[in-house]
């Protein structure tokens, strides 16, 4: 328990007047020392941490876009349902010959069971299909909600999910929606996991929001993506 710390803190609470100069000197000195030390550590590790974050995404992109060996990051922006301009990142994957294999896009939803769920999905512009999904961040209940990471039947939803655009290429032809386990199969339906409904629904919602925002933009910039090889 905290008894020790409490005993320790108690004398500190007493304000003995013993000349405040040495006290300030010590505290100031320590603060300075720690500030310097920390800024050094920060400088030293900052780059590596950033690289770690990049590597995490890069590995996921390669995993999602089979055949891709190179990638390039594009920054786009589209307007969301409320008409607000929203920037997003697209990770384009290319094979050895420099052909565009697909684009990895990010989707997230804050209302999972345990909070935010964030994942990447691979999109093939030529077939208009989602070809895979990989969870980046998931705080769902172990054994239940976190099966969205591993449940094969669920991940199969995203192996070849048709996401055609409407004729004017400004919106999805049909929405992506959650379906009850065993009751899916319709266009754009994502079958949930029994016992993990909330998490599955959050994924489906994130998928729909992300796709309806980003896919029209990707179509618009397709040539740019195909030409700007790494």
């Amino acid at each position: 328990m905290t008894t020790q710390a409490q005993a320790a803190a108690a004398p500190a609470a007493q304000h003995n007047s013993g000349g405040s100069i040495p006290m300030l000197r010590t505290l100031g000195g320590l603060a300075l020392l720690s500030g310097c030390l920390l800024s050094l550590v920060y400088q030293g590790t900052n780059e590596r941490i950033a690289r770690n974050f990049e590597a995490r995404v890069r590995d996921a992109v390669f995993e999602l876009l089979p055949g891709a060996t190179q990638q390039k990051v594009f920054e786009f922006s589209g307007s969301d349902e409320a008409g607000k301009d929203t920037p997003f990142t697209a990770y384009a994957g290319y094979d050895d010959t420099g052909r565009l294999v697909g684009v990895a896009l990010e989707a997230s939803d804050g209302n999972g069971y345990g909070g935010e769920i964030r994942f990447l999905y691979g999109y093939q512009p030529d077939t208009q299909q989602v070809v895979g999904m990989k969870v980046l961040l998931c705080k769902e209940t172990p054994g239940l909600g976190d099966r969205i990471k591993t449940d094969e039947a669920f991940l199969d939803n995203f192996k070849a999910l048709e996401v055609p655009l409407a004729d004017d290429a400004s919106a999805l032809a049909h929405p992506l929606a959650y379906a009850k386990p065993g009751k899916g199969g319709g266009p754009g339906q994502i079958e949930g996991i029994s016992g993990a409904t909330i998490s599955s629904k959050a994924v489906a919602r994130a998928m729909h929001n992300s796709a309806s925002l980003m896919l029209p933009v990707i179509r618009k910039h397709l040539s740019e993506l195909q030409e700007n090889k790494p």
């Binding site: 320790a8 803190a9 004398p11 500190a12 007493q14 304000h15 003995n16 013993g18 040495p22 006290m23 010590t26 505290l27 320590l30 603060a31 020392l33 720690s34 030390l37 920390l38 550590v41 920060y42 590790t45 590596r48 941490i49 770690n52 974050f53 995490r56």
Partner: peptide, 30 residues
């Protein structure tokens, strides 16, 4: 370290090392 600011000093020292560990772990494995 003067007795009166002992705990404060300890906390500064400890917090410094904790921050170092924090960054170290981030740089090792996310």
């Amino acid at each position: 370290i003067p007795k009166q600011v002992r705990i404060a000093s300890f906390i500064i020292i400890i917090a410094t090392f904790v921050t170092i560990v924090d960054y170290a772990i981030q740089s090792i494995s996310l």
